[in-house]
Write a protein that binds this DNA or RNA. Structure first.
Lengths: 194, 194
DNA sequence: CGCACCAAACCGACTGGACGGTACGTTGGA
DNA sequence: TCCAACGTACCGTCCAGTCGGTTTGGTGCG
C-alpha cells in the first residue's frame, strides 16, 4: 500500500537527517522536504517529532533483542555462544550505523516516558548478556576477578563506539572488524591460561 | 578577581546543564539563571552560546594532551608507558565525567571551524597513542595481526563509554576501574604468550 | 454500471511562543 | 572623565504543531 510508503519515507529521511545533523537541529520541515511529503501528511502518521525519534529506537531495540534471543536459543558451548553474540552485535551495529549514531547521541532528547522505556529495554538486553557471561564464569572459562558489569560495559563500549570511527568505505570489512573486536574482548575476559 | 568569577560560574553552570539536558535543549536563559548572573553579563564574557560549548572542549583537550605528553616524556618500558597512559586517561575521564558526556554527545553542535579544530586536536591525540602502540609492536610486545586503528578504537571506546555507565557512588572506585579496564585492554592486545 | 456517500489521506497557511543575540542605559572604580 | 563591567528591555527569526479545507479510494445501492 502506498500510505505506508509515506511513513517509511519520512522515517528514512528522519533517520538520515538525525544522524548527520542531530535531532534538535533538524526541523520537521527539513524532514518532510527530504521525504518529499508535506507536513500535514507526516502529522497524519506521527503524533509528534518525538515519535520519529522513538520509532528509530523501537526498531533498533526490537532487532537487537530478536537477534540475541535467537542466538541464545540455538545453544552450544558458552564461549561459542558469547562469541556468536558479540560478532552478531558488531555486524548488526555496522549494518545500522546511522541508527547507532542517533541512538547514543540523541537518547536524552526522548520525552520522559519513552526514555524510561528505552532505558528499561536496554537494561534487559544488557542483563541477558550479563547472564551469558555469568554462565561462562560458572563454567570456569571467564574470569571472575573483575566485576561483571565492567565486563559488560567493556564490550558494549566497542559497539557504541563503532559509529565514531568505522567507515564502510574504510579498509576493514564488517566481518573482519566483528571478529577482531570479539577476539580482543574474549581474550581479555578469559581466565588466565593455566 | 570577581570578574573571572562570573565567567567561571557561567562555564560551570553551562557544563552542568549541557551534561544533564544536552546543548540544544539548554537555553542561554537557563544557564545565566543557574549561574546567578544576567544575560548581559554573560554576553560580556562570551561571544555566543557556542563559545560556552567550545570552552568545555578546549579545556578537556588541553588537559588530556598535557597528561599524555607528561607521561610519555617520563619514559620507561613501552608497556609500562602504555599502561600508565591508559590508567591516567580513565581516571581523568572519571574526574571529568560531565565534560565527557558533553564531549561525545554534543560535538556535532559545534560550528564548523571549531568542529574542525576539535577533530584535529583529537586526531593528534589518537595518533600519539597509536605511536605508542606502534613502539610496542616494534618491540614485539603488542600483536600486529589486528589493524592499529582498531586497537586504538578499542581502547578509546572504553573511555568514551564511561559516562554512560560509571557512577562515582557505585561500587567501583575510580582507581579500580582504571586498572581493570587497562588490564582488559592490555591482555587483549599483547602478543599471544609463546 | 454509475452514482451517492463517507472516511481516511493529505495539504499548507498560520499561530503562539521560545530563544539567541543586541542596543542601550547604568554604575563604580581609577 | 573614562572605561570596563554589568543590567534590561527588546527584536527578528525560527519552528513544532494545528486546523479548516480538499482530494481520493473504497463501498453499498438502485
Amino acid at each position: 500500500m502506498k500510505s505506508t510508503n509515506v511513513a517509511d519515507r519520512v522515517t528514512a529521511a528522519a533517520l538520515d537527517l538525525f544522524a548527520t545533523q542531530g535531532y534538535a537541529t533538524t526541523s520537521v520541515q527539513q524532514i518532510v522536504e527530504a521525504a518529499g511529503v508535506t507536513k500535514g501528511a507526516m502529522y497524519h502518521y506521527f503524533q509528534s517529532k518525538d515519535d520519529l525519534l522513538f520509532a528509530i529506537y523501537d526498531r533498533m531495540l526490537a532487532l537487537q533483542k530478536a537477534h540475541l534471543d535467537q542466538i541464545v536459543a540455538a545453544g552450544g558451548p558458552v564461549e561459542d555462544v558469547v562469541r556468536a553474540v558479540c560478532v552478531d552485535v558488531v555486524e548488526t551495529s555496522i549494518d545500522f550505523l546511522p541508527e547507532g549514531t542517533v541512538f547514543f547521541r540523541s537518547m536524552h532528547m526522548l520525552t520522559e516516558p519513552r526514555l524510561k522505556e528505552v532505558t528499561q529495554r536496554r537494561r534487559e538486553y544488557h542483563d541477558e548478556f550479563a547472564a551469558l557471561l555469568r554462565q561462562g564464569q560458572d563454567a570456569g572459562v571467564f574470569r571472575t576477578d573483575v566485576p561483571r558489569p565492567l565486563l559488560v560495559a567493556h564490550f558494549f563500549s566497542d559497539v557504541h563506539y563503532l559509529s565514531h570511527w568505522y567507515s564502510p568505505t574504510g579498509p576493514e570489512t564488517k566481518t573482519e572488524v566483528a571478529q577482531q573486536l570479539t577476539e580482543l574482548f574474549l581474550r581479555g575476559i578469559r581466565t588466565p591460561a593455566s
